[in-house]
């Protein structure tokens, strides 16, 4: 790749970014995500604030009475971002798919593709430029929601994250950009492959719903104990030991249930960011190195799936016809 090619890619990326910003899309998307993030962190922070106050009162009382060994707080301020990460997982994916659709739709409506192809720009450069522009846009969105979330924890929850926690969060947000970029590629791929881009949008949304909402939910839905309000085993009068004995007869079913959950890269994304944000108590004592050994397979999935989607997007952009015959929308 020579410097002229890099320059063209940069120009295309800047165009992609500017086009979205000019059409006020960025502000709309940011508004939705920021409000949802503030709502979720606020709800969690209000409860956290009273827990922090309780702990501080306990610590002061213990110090005043001469105790020199005071139990450390088990509160994890980063875990207040659980809802915010769930919003990125769902809303972020929808935003990314919509951006992918709008990129294709914009080119078709404005008929800019024949013009672009008349210039010395390869399809590969076009795909890379669009992808980088979208990634920059998504990085802006993620950065703003991240700053919003961290400030909310400090201001509302009265607990500021430490530098090492900040590093974990930065990693989680970096992975969020990769995750959303994968969905952008999906939006472009489906829209380009559809004669009517909007059908591609529906197809992409279906894939999104399947992998972001349905497959992870299937795990919960198929959990035998969740079939009866209050719990099936409780309704049958079974204790924990009985439950384990009975479930041993359903190994295939249980394996299938967890494997269905496992095929969703969105679920792997969730596991990774939850581990980084201390949502799961079992991961809280671990440092970054320890965490990475626990969740490296999830990280591999989060990188592998977007890589595959980006490959599909590049192939679709390369092979798309310059003129869409008979397409209207």
């Amino acid at each position: 790749m020579n410097s002229t090619s890099i320059s063209r890619i940069r120009t295309l990326a800047a165009h992609e970014y500017r086009a979205a910003v000019r059409s006020r899309i960025l502000l709309t998307l940011l508004g939705i995500l920021a409000v949802a993030t503030i709502a979720s962190v606020y709800v969690a922070s209000v409860a956290h604030r009273s827990q922090v106050a309780d702990y501080r009162a306990y610590k002061d009382a213990a110090s005043a009475s001469g105790l020199d060994r005071i139990a450390p707080s088990n509160l994890a301020p980063m875990s207040l971002l659980r809802g915010a990460f769930e919003y990125l997982q769902i809303i972020g994916a929808v935003i990314a798919v919509s951006l992918g659709y709008l990129t294709v739709q914009r080119e078709r409506t404005n008929r800019t593709l024949p013009l672009l192809r008349s210039r010395p720009v390869t399809a590969g450069e076009q795909a890379t430029g669009g992808l980088l522009g979208a990634a920059a846009l998504l990085a802006t969105i993620v950065a703003i929601t991240a700053i919003t979330g961290v400030i909310c924890i400090g201001v509302i929850g009265n607990d500021w994250v430490t530098p090492s926690e900040l590093l974990q969060l930065a990693l989680a947000y970096l992975v969020s950009i990769v995750y959303m970029t994968g969905f952008y590629a999906l939006g472009v791929f489906c829209s380009v492959r559809s004669r009517h881009a909007v059908n591609g949008l529906i197809a992409a949304l279906c894939v999104l719903v399947l992998f972001v909402l349905v497959t992870p939910q299937i795990g919960d839905t198929l959990d035998a104990d969740n079939q009866i309000p209050g719990g099936l085993f409780k309704a049958l009068g079974m204790n924990r030991a009985d439950e384990t004995t009975i479930l041993n007869h359903f190994n295939v079913y249980e394996t299938l249930r967890t494997r269905i959950e496992w095929i969703s890269f969105s679920q792997h994304y969730q596991r990774f960011v939850f581990a980084m944000a201390d949502v799961k108590e079992r991961y809280r004592p671990l440092g970054l190195g320890g965490l990475m050994t626990k969740v490296w397979t999830d990280l591999a999935w989060v990188f592998a799936a977007p890589a595959a989607l980006i490959a599909l997007q590049r192939r679709a952009v390369r092979t798309q016809p310059t003129m869409q015959e008979g397409a209207t929308s």
Binding site: S23, I25, T28, L29, I32, A36, I90, L102, Q105
Partner: peptide, 18 residues
């Protein structure tokens, strides 16, 4: 069109999740 579609999706996200 783009803003209209995204705004509607925004309403859906707000009503369903937020």
């Amino acid at each position: 069109r783009s803003l209209g579609l995204l705004a509607a999706i925004g309403v859906w996200l707000t009503l369903t999740f937020a």
